[in-house]
Computed example of a mutant assay.
Amino acid sequence: MSTLRLDDFVPYRLSYTSNLVSEAIARTYESLFGLTIPEWRLVAVIAEHDGITQAAICTRTGMDKVTVSRAAIALTARGLVARAPSPTDRRSHDLALTGEGRALYAQVAPKALELEKQIFGGLGAAELRGFVATLRRIDAIVRGGGN
């Protein structure tokens, strides 16, 4: 029988490293822009898909409904996001960035890319592409969509 060593257990290592990266990014977004990680994710997804529903954001980001709802409420209260009834689903609302939201995104996006470079810049381009491909493959396996 094998012995479980937590520090060598891949799910633990993945979670631990993910938490370290998220915490570093969260501190930066909070201090510079007053955004939580869920709020930043909403801003980024809405910037890519203006007029997106909260349900679609949940699907795209893997965040739960309550987290998305709270972030949407906070961003709407700050005037960064506008809500409009969805033309395709009467029970839902489409979210879009306001002018102020687009201006914030224009400031945050370059900082996000800078942080990514700081954290992952020590990896070569091929190594980073392979790492991302591996993460996507793990996503698919966990979702039941492939090996």
Rank of each mutant, 00 (worst) to 15 (best):
A44D: 12
T36D: 03
V21E: 06
S18Q: 13
V45D: 08
P87I: 03
P110H: 04
R136M: 08
T61C: 10
V108W: 00
T53A: 09
K65M: 12
S92P: 01
P87R: 04
I57W: 00
K117F: 06
G79H: 12
E23H: 12
A84D: 06
P11N: 04
G122H: 14
V81L: 05
T3P: 13
H93T: 09
Y16P: 01
L75V: 07
G144W: 06
N19M: 14
G144H: 06
I37M: 15
S18D: 09
G99H: 08
R60C: 07
G79F: 14
T98C: 03
E116M: 05
I46L: 09
R27G: 02
S22F: 10
R136Q: 11
K111P: 00
E116Y: 09
L35P: 01
T61P: 14
T53K: 07
D8Q: 13
E116N: 07
A24Y: 07
A74K: 13
I73E: 12
R137N: 10
F9N: 13
A125V: 13
A74N: 12
A24V: 05
E48F: 00
L80C: 03
R70N: 15
T98Y: 10
C58Q: 15
V132N: 03
R78C: 01
R83C: 13
R5H: 12
T76R: 13
A112N: 06
A24R: 15
T36R: 10
R60V: 10
R102H: 07
E127V: 11
L115P: 01
R137A: 11
A84R: 15
S22R: 15
A71K: 07
N147Y: 00
A106H: 00
L4M: 08
E30W: 05
E114F: 08
A109C: 02
S92H: 07
Q118T: 01
T3Y: 02
Q118G: 01
Y16R: 15
L20W: 03
Y105D: 02
V21M: 10
R83P: 14
Y16V: 08
A26I: 06
A47V: 05
T98H: 07
A106P: 00
F131W: 11
A109N: 04
D8S: 11
F131H: 12
N19L: 15
D89N: 13
A96D: 01
A106D: 03
